[in-house]
């Protein structure tokens, strides 16, 4: 496997990570509540969102 293949594979892995994160990681919005399933999550500014501890 050449270097290019490894780079492409890494890019794919990173994409998978972000896709999984988008599906599963629950975030807290600025309201303090959970973003999962919240209709406001689209409009909640990202800087205010914190990963759930």
């Amino acid at each position: 496997m050449n270097l290019f293949s490894i780079i492409v594979l890494i890019v794919l892995c990173v994409s998978v990570f972000f896709a999984l994160r988008a599906i599963f990681v629950k975030k807290k919005g600025r309201c303090g509540g959970n973003c999962a399933g919240c209709p406001l999550s689209d409009t909640c500014s990202k800087k205010d969102q914190q990963p759930e501890v």
Binding site: M1, N2, F4, S5, V8, L9, L12
Partner: peptide, 14 residues
């Protein structure tokens, strides 16, 4: 990807 000789399995994945 073929021109850059990407691994055929990775290429198939993409």
């Amino acid at each position: 990807l073929t021109a850059y000789q990407l691994n055929p399995v990775v290429q198939s994945l993409i």
